[in-house]
Design a protein around this nucleic acid. Structure first.
Lengths: 195, 195
DNA sequence: TTACAATTAGTAGTAGCTAATAATAGGTGC
DNA sequence: GCACCTATTATTAGCTACTACTAATTGTAA
């Protein structure tokens, strides 16, 4: 219980409480502050704070829009496939953001570039399941958040279920990364083996 | 408006509508299906779907818990640093989840494992900024969602600002990945060069 | 035609409010 | 002491979106 507060102090506290827990009804707030429900309502009115139900709706709608952003991010990790010729080659684009970079320098973390290259390489293999076996990566130049990366992948060799894919990533015409990935196409045996 | 549906079809549709938009009141649903509010209520009762207000509260509470999971996920990408001796070696752990894996097979995408290795390797370099230059990766065994990965990194050589870091990732005592990463420690020149 | 399911209608009661009006308590100024 | 003012509390009517229950109506198949 909270007692003996000036109107201003009380309103500040009420604001804090509601911010922390939007699910508080006027009745519960009144109990917490040992004052009447009517005073809480006057306070809310003065501060322009909507009723509990509307606050909950706000929270619910906020979160659903956040979900959309999240699912976008999931795509960003892989980049956007622009063109594919299965078994031959493919192009993907990744727009880098601050989230992918080191805060101090703004340089994009290397594994985001690898993710782009790796998922593109796997995409162009025309098979149900493809796994990366061996990879040789070479980072040529640092990439800064905001730059748009263009990845081109090409199947260089193919013997049985073993593919050698070479990937070149450019930013603004300049090569920032190259990689050679050995990828194996696998059938469901792998899963059964393990299970 | 939707008309002339069997009870079962209607209930299915109602379920879909509510799943898509939890903010639909019984009144609005009744209008959409051109039936009475009471029928909507009976349908909800039979299907065990709570009233609009409770649905909104669920959405609001879900989202706040999802937020916590999201921030956890950000850590998961890198894994959890267990032990570090700067400039020498380090250990990190990554608990793999379904989100990191291919849906069909449950095999963890290779770039999550590289991310673990790469960020651990960068972490043990005792410098302000460290960038990956060249990397040789070797995936030994497929990793299935749910397995906990333990990554050990060691600085194998160090000449000037060039470090050779070897990383071994194990799951349940078995080696699933090894990598050799050449990492460069960089001062702020890189940033100024570009800017 | 009877029997039963499905649908609709209606009533009482609930939480958590808005909006408006009124009553009360406490302090300040003259 | 009285007027004035603010803050607080109380009261009432009305709203939405329900639950829970009872009752009436409609449709349909045996």
């Amino acid at each position: 219980m909270i007692r003996n507060l000036s109107k201003l102090e009380r309103q500040k506290k009420i604001k804090e409480y509601i911010l922390k827990d939007p699910f508080l009804s006027d009745k519960k707030l009144a109990e917490l502050f040992s004052i009447s429900v009517q005073t809480i309502r006057l306070d809310r009115l003065e501060m322009g704070i909507p009723e509990m139900r509307k606050r909950i709706v706000q929270v619910a709608k906020n979160t659903s829009s956040k979900d959309k952003v999240k699912s976008l991010k999931k795509e960003e990790i892989i980049g956007e496939l622009i063109d594919i010729e299965l078994g031959k080659n493919g192009i993907a684009i990744l727009k880098t953001t601050k989230d992918m970079a080191f805060g101090r320098t703004g340089i994009v973390r290397s594994h985001y570039i690898f993710s782009l290259a790796d998922s593109l390489a796997i995409s162009i293999i025309n098979t149900e399941v493809a796994l990366t076996g061996i990879a040789r990566l070479s980072y040529k130049k640092p990439v800064y958040a905001g730059e748009t990366l263009v990845a081109k992948a090409r199947v260089a060799r193919n013997r049985g279920n073993k593919y050698l894919v070479s990937v070149h990533v450019k930013s603004d015409q300049k090569e920032v990364f190259t990689g050679k990935l050995v990828i194996f196409s696998v059938n469901d045996k792998v899963k059964k083996e393990k299970a």
